[in-house]
């Protein structure tokens, strides 16, 4: 019952901004792409982390303490829903918990508390070069990445030319990707992720390294995904881009949800907040 009540709240929150939408209409289960329910993620912060057994043991002898960390919450009671076919933006200052949230949705970080429901295949582009092996070349990495997503060999094989073409890396296909520029790795990562046609695509800042031409290409792909009712969750510091793209924006501050709704309003609020914290 609590869940339903929360859902109601969310819909109401959304209705304030999305004047065009019918507020009374409840989002049905099929319409939901991601549901984050009261999620808390905590990290350990070490003043000086003992990284070896020897060190930990010596410290234990000296001080009699085993625990050497404080926990802090990177995310506190975060709840929201993302509908299918939506571009969902997340903004917030550094350390607000944006990347943590993305990694949680991608299933990499297990939440300490709360529940996460994800309907469909998720693909994420969180860090540059993550999910790749720097020693391998582009083709080998496409195979590696595909196999980690449980794709069959023959399927991957049929997709390789397409991916290389999209990433514009045909000429560098046999170069180990550790020699790639950041733009090249970003292109490869994006091409690989998009090619799998995920139901939910998670994009962190990575696209910022691409040039204008590639960004245009990405926009086209985004549009295609959206036409297929796929969902895009995006984090960016480029507020203008966010305002242009996002249907809805979540504003995070210190791991808490500050605002959720209309992009324009969210951005204004974010500017206000950062302005004030900068002054104080």
């Amino acid at each position: 019952m609590v869940a339903i009540a929360k859902q109601q709240e969310m819909v109401e929150a959304a209705s304030i901004s999305d004047a065009g939408l019918n507020a009374a209409e409840e989002t049905s289960a099929e319409e939901l792409a991601v549901k984050v329910d009261n999620i808390t993620i905590s990290f350990r912060s070490y003043k000086e982390r003992p990284t070896t057994l020897k060190e930990s043991f010596l410290r234990f002898l000296k001080t009699g303490k085993v625990k050497y960390y404080d926990t802090f919450n990177a995310l506190t009671d975060v709840s929201f829903e993302v509908k299918r076919g939506e571009v969902f933006g997340i903004i917030g200052s550094n350390g607000a918990g944006k990347s943590t949230l993305l990694r949680t949705i991608a299933g990499v970080l297990p939440p300490k508390k709360g529940e996460l429901t994800v309907n469909g295949k998720v693909d994420s582009l969180i860090q540059l070069g993550a999910g790749f092996d720097g020693e391998l070349n582009a083709i080998e990495n496409i195979y590696l990445n595909g196999s980690l997503h449980k794709l069959s060999r023959s399927f991957i094989k049929s997709r390789v030319p397409e991916i290389l073409k999209f990433a514009e890396l045909e000429d560098f296909a046999t170069t180990p990707i550790k020699y790639y520029s950041s733009g090249m790795s970003a292109r490869l990562g994006f091409a690989v992720a998009v090619d799998r046609e995920p139901d939910i695509l998670i994009v962190d800042e990575v696209l910022a390294v691409g040039d204008e031409r590639f960004k245009k290409k990405c926009d086209k792909v985004f549009q295609r995904l959206l036409d297929q009712k796929k969902t895009i969750i995006i984090v960016s510091h480029s507020l203008s881009q966010m305002q242009e793209m996002a249907d809805k924006i979540l504003l995070l501050s210190k791991g808490r949800v500050v605002f959720l709704g209309d992009p324009k309003e969210a951005i204004e609020k974010y500017r206000d907040d950062s302005y004030q914290t900068a002054l104080s």
Binding site: V108, A130, G131, F132, L148, H149
Partner: peptide, 9 residues
């Protein structure tokens, strides 16, 4: 670690 950080396997 790089793979673990990105793909849920």
């Amino acid at each position: 670690a790089k793979i673990i950080d990105q793909v849920a396997v």
